[in-house]
Structure formats: C-alpha cells, structure tokens
Design a protein around this nucleic acid. Structure first.
Lengths: 112, 112
DNA sequence: CATAAGAGCGACCTCTTGGTTGCTCATTAC
DNA sequence: GTAATGAGCAACCAAGAGGTCGCTCTTATG
C-alpha cells in the first residue's frame, strides 16, 4: 500500500515548492522533462555550474521526490517524477479554488 | 493591455515557487484563502511570529504578486491573488504533461 | 594492468533568509 | 488633546543556501 500519492498539506508542500524555487533546478527539471533519464555529467553540460554544484541541486530534487535516481554501472540516471509535480499542482488548485469559492459566496451576499 | 497573466518561464516561475516554499507563508495564504482580506495584526494572531516577521513574509508574497495590499485608514488589507496561483499551477501542468508525452512516445517505440 | 570517466565526501566561503528588538510615524478612539 | 492601535524602518543575529576546490573511490575502456 504505497502512500506516495496522498495529498500535500502546508507542511509537506513547503519543501517541494522550496525545491522548485530555484532557476537552476527548474532548468534541470525541464531538461529531464524533455526525454530520457540522464546522468549527472550529462545534466552538468551547458548548466554553467560545477558537477558538484549540480549534484547538490539533484540531491534536493531527490529528497523532495521530484526526481528519482538509479545506478547504472558507474553512472546515476535521474528521472523526473511527474506525479510529484501533480501533487504540487493540486495543492495550488485547492488553494485557488477555495478562494474563488469564498469570493463567489461574498458576491452573492452583496447582490441580495 | 495588462501583461499580468502571461505564461511563466523558468526565470519568472522560480521566485514564485520560492515564495511558496515556506510553511509560514503557505499558512498565511491559507488564511487569506478562507475569506476576506485581512490586516497585518489580524494575520499575525496565532502565527507564533512577531508582527515584523509576518510583515517580511507578506512583503515577499506581494513582490511575487501572490497577494496584493490596499491601505484602508491605518490598516493594510491583504488579498490573495488566485490567478497568480493559477499561473504557477499551469507551469507545473506543462512540465508534467511534457514528461508524460515523452514517456508515451517512448513506450510506443518499445512496443513496435 | 593502467588510465579515464562518473560520482561521493568534506572543507570552506559568501550571500541570503528568517527571525528578533527598538524606535518612529500616522491614524483612529476616547 | 491624549492615548492606543496599526504599520514602517533600521540594525542586528544565527542558520542555511548555493557555490567552489581537492581528494578518494568505483567502474569501464584500451
């Protein structure tokens, strides 16, 4: 029984958004979204950052489960976890929906 | 011609996610999502934080346009901007969709 | 086997973040 | 008019983030 896809709350969502809150990390995710799993050196290319710097970012992304990694020989291949992005997306969805509902109720009151 | 609701890219999205990447700030947004615009002292209540601390968080939320403020007498009322949340949501939507599409194409290739 | 390639680990540095306190200013209430 | 309330500003502090370098370890490759 995997608990991987339960809903995020303020406490669990914050680290995920924090992980998304960096240009370089978003760039890494965008790279991974484009196709196959990629190794650290591959992801380092054209990133304007040292390999160790990239590793740090990938560690953060992995800790928040936005990516997963798999060792293949001497390489480590990173894969985007789109379901995790989905969880973050749904969190925002709920917040904005709640607000829109509140506004809607308020307007009805005013109209009466 | 307002440019407020154009699409986010990696550069413009990062600060928004960074703003969302803090428990306290998510709590503030949740509060604002519950109903009417609220002042700083109101938002401070039960936050376990000094008024100035809350002000700092609200400043960050306002700089990224997740909230707007309006002066009313000696108070400042903060309002949630649900469309901004929507922009962030759509950014995540695109990334995960792109990945899912890539995976789909890959599987088709394998099946052949 | 020797070497190259991919990655881990630790030390280090600087700038930013999240938080505080203290004081001042403006607006409302009595 | 005086007090109380809401907010701004500046200084300060500790901890964390983002980045580097240097060295070691492991896994191919020739």
């Amino acid at each position: 029984m995997s608990r991987r896809t339960r809903e995020l709350n303020a406490t669990t969502a914050a680290p995920v958004f924090a992980a998304l809150g960096d240009r370089k990390r978003l760039a890494l995710l965008a790279r991974l979204a484009n196709g196959q799993p990629q190794s650290i050196v591959q992801l380092t290319r054209g990133m304007g950052l040292s390999r160790q710097g990239v590793t740090k970012h990938l560690t953060i992304l992995e800790q928040t489960r936005l990516v997963t990694s798999e060792r293949v020989g001497r390489e480590i291949r990173f894969t985007l976890q789109s379901n995790r992005l989905g969880e973050a997306k749904r969190y925002l969805e709920r917040a904005s929906q709640q607000w829109d509902d509140a506004i809607g109720r308020l307007q009805k009151l005013v109209e009466k």
